[in-house]
Amino acid sequence: MTDTSDPDGESAGPDAGDADGDTKAGSGEPVVDAAEVEHVAELARVRLAEEETETFADQFAEILEYFEALDEVPDLDREEELVNVMRADEVEAGLAQEEALANAAETEDGFFKGPKVS
């Protein structure tokens, strides 16, 4: 565990590098590197093969580039933000157990059933 977590623990290095990359977005340097993709995949509990990591790094960079289009959007007058939107503390009818479980891939005794987690 220490072996695999050490690079992450020391991530001040690579992370700082990423942060630089982010600020220089559009300047041609890689916005998302393989380490970042692996980190996100791990948080999402998705296992990626090495070549997938490279593919996703490229794709992430492309996707992020699309957002640059937002820089072109002119300033607009916008609606004032809402505040204090609340509901009264009154019980509303919800879903019956069968309805709640209707889309579940697997169930057991009224529970959603999933793989083991730790």
Binding site: E92, A96, Q97
Partner: peptide, 18 residues
């Protein structure tokens, strides 16, 4: 949401959801 926070009857699971 408006789901009740009362414990469900017989502790039946997934009966207080929306």
């Amino acid at each position: 949401c408006g789901c009740s926070t009362e414990p469900a009857d017989d502790e039946e699971p997934n009966t207080r959801t929306c």
